[in-house]
Design a protein around this nucleic acid. Structure first.
Lengths: 179, 179
DNA sequence: GCCGGACCATACTTGGGAGTATGGTCTCCG
DNA sequence: CGGAGACCATACTCCCAAGTATGGTCCGGC
């Protein structure tokens, strides 16, 4: 038969990652993960010393994933700035659940805040680079990149904040030159 | 002597409101409020039947306050649209702590989400009205109002997201006409 | 075939916050 | 003065998630 329910350390991390994306940080509870994995807490406390260790592993996993994604963006096939910005938006829609969970978590956990800060620095750098390619000055590009990111994550905190027509036109607005 | 530590129902609500703004929803705990007020839980459960009743009262208090503020905006002295938008931003800075706490709370509490939704509808309406005064079409005004709000609350979720130069220029960007 | 270590189940204990039961104190009013 | 009701303190119980203790099972190596 197919080897009993033995799970590895990465299985716990993966399950926790799913739970984090779906239910937020306080949703990732040992018992819930155990149930999801078909084992009990006994397994968990063999692979980890305590919950904080698991959460640190989550931070690590997310940081790496996010780094890879942003790297893939900057290594993308096209060099057309506007298309690159559109791909950033597309990525944003993909990672929305986990991204949102991470940012909410970062509100009351300094370690998570630090991870988000670091990831945002990279992402903002990439966005700003695209804007500079479009002819904006360095400082202007920085400001608009930050504005673009804020406009994006702001959607997490606004009920009914997902106007279908918004994503199509937000770039137009953010890229309009001052007169 | 100055009448013992007798507190009224509104004192509990006020203390809870402070705690909500400062420590978030899960920070408003009965014992913490009791300590802050110099009484014990016995007092609380005389004025309220349970914690949900207190939280509903908080929602109410916030909704009224927010309604008054937005009303004051639309009844403001000036009629110059751009100045009105600047005052909205100024209000945003004032109410940032409680606004942020409410939105975070709304992430896992339907009643809070409903309150935020309702308040946002009014605020967005007011912003959009200013934008229409500036010559934008109705639909365009709606979109830009939403974008402005998202850009604002997005700052809550971005570490180091408070660039000093941002508030000065964000209006310029949001008000630039498409070419 | 059996032994040691990897892995997990069971059954605890602990800590913190919500909620309850009950009795005490002040104040006002008759 | 003497209750009645408003208001609060004390001391519980309940619940839930984290963490611990301990014993059981499986599997590879000798």
């Amino acid at each position: 038969m197919t080897t009993r329910a033995r799970v590895a350390r990465r299985d716990w991390i993966e399950a926790a990652y799913q739970e984090l994306a779906g239910a937020g940080e306080r949703g990732v509870t040992i018992n819930a993960l155990a149930a999801r994995l078909g084992v009990t807490k006994g397994s968990f406390y063999w692979h980890f010393t305590d919950r904080p260790e698991l959460m640190r592993a989550l931070l690590d996993r997310w940081a790496h994933e996010r780094t890879d994604e942003v790297l893939a963006l900057s290594l993308g096939s096209t060099t057309e700035p506007r298309e690159r910005l559109r791909r950033i938006q597309a990525l944003g829609r993909e990672v929305a659940p986990i991204d949102r969970a991470m940012r909410l978590w970062a509100q009351h956990e300094p370690a998570a805040e630090e991870a988000v800060r670091h990831a945002d620095r990279a992402l903002l750098g990439h966005i700003a680079a695209c804007l500079e390619d479009l002819g904006f000055g360095a400082e202007e590009a920085r400001l608009r990149a930050l504005l673009m990111l804020r406009a994006w994550v702001g959607g997490y905190l606004i009920p009914d904040g997902s106007d279908p027509g918004l994503y199509d036109t937000t770039l137009d607005i953010l890229l309009a030159r001052p007169r």
